[in-house]
């Protein structure tokens, strides 16, 4: 332990108990938003205060923590949160999806399939999927209670009327365990099928909105759609420029001011893993090219 100035994982034990109770309730009612007494955290709202509190409440000394932001292990948000828990809890951290026991994520689900001993913690900005259609919180709660979800289809209808297809690309509404409609946090809809029947426990924390919800392992998660406009995951139609993956979610990276761009895996761990295993894309790093050139010359 190198963190004598803090209680283990920053939060005091009573707060952690309170959050754990909310988590247990959330697991018992899949997809239902459980209110909890969200605390001020030493980071701004919108940076994952909800996810951090959930992680703090479930973290044990022997856990191995991975934090990703938009799939990447090396962005400011991910590094800060990883350091935060390394300092306040002294837990081991990793960038490997497979080795981690707790994965806190913002806006992505890792490409590698998760297993039973893992917990995926999502950072959620707006937990209420009906918010932009029905601004009254009292009314949306009633709609959840009575399972009145016609309004959610109004949003999808609007998409088709305006764009000819369901244009919602992220935060795509899902129905959990055939009961509650849930906002999967702003993950791309590409990730929605991964939530269905997932072996890992999925927890969602919204700090500013003071809500926790959960998908227990092996729970049915269905993306909403119309019979004649079925749900379709979306990805850029290109292989990853670094690892050549054809089935991973891609980020578009603008490389100069003349319109050049490259598509690379948003999940950095997955991409690096593939490159280490010998896969390569059109713009792979130098060693592979040097090697190829060397072979050609030699």
């Amino acid at each position: 332990m190198n963190a004598p100035a803090y209680n283990f994982a920053y939060l005091d034990e009573q707060t952690k108990r309170m959050i754990r109770r909310a988590i247990l309730k959330a697991i018992a009612i899949p997809g239902y938003q459980v209110p909890f007494a969200s605390r001020e955290m030493p980071m701004p709202y919108g940076w994952g205060t909800g996810g951090v509190q959930v992680t703090a409440a479930i973290l044990g000394p022997r856990d191995v923590l991975k934090v990703i932001d938009q799939g990447s292990d090396d962005t400011t948000n991910a590094i800060s949160i990883r350091k935060f828990f390394a300092k306040t809890a002294g837990v081991a951290t990793t960038t490997s999806t497979d080795e981690a026991t707790v994965i806190q994520t913002r806006h992505r689900i890792p490409e590698a399939s998760l297993h039973q001993s893992q917990v995926l913690v999502y950072q959620v900005p707006i937990p209420e999927p009906l918010r932009f259609l029905e601004p009254r919180e009292t009314e949306t709660r009633r709609m959840h209670a009575l399972a009145e979800y016609g309004l959610m289809h109004v949003k999808l209808y609007e998409d088709i009327a305006r764009f000819g297809h369901i244009a919602t690309a992220y935060a795509y509404p899902v129905k959990v365990n055939a009961r509650y409609v849930m906002d999967p946090s702003p993950t791309p809809k590409f990730d929605n099928p991964k939530m269905d029947n997932c072996p890992a426990l999925q927890l969602f924390g919204a700090g500013r909105e003071k809500r926790i919800y959960a998908i227990p392992p092996y729970t049915q998660v269905v993306s909403l759609d119309f019979e004649d406009h079925p749900f379709e995951p979306y990805r850029f139609n290109a292989p990853c420029a670094l690892c050549g993956a054809e089935n991973s979610y891609l980020d578009e990276i603008v490389t100069d001011d003349k319109g050049s761009r490259m598509f690379v895996c948003s999940d950095t761990d997955y991409c690096e893993g593939r490159q280490a295993a010998g896969h390569h894309g059109a713009l792979s790093a130098a060693p592979y090219k040097d090697k190829a050139r060397g072979e050609a010359n030699g």
Binding site: E148, G150, H153, V154, Y157, I160, F226, E227
Partner: peptide, 12 residues
């Protein structure tokens, strides 16, 4: 269409 969707119509 909202009322129709509310009573379970699922065909755009």
């Amino acid at each position: 269409g909202e009322r129709l969707m509310a009573v379970g119509w699922n065909h755009y």
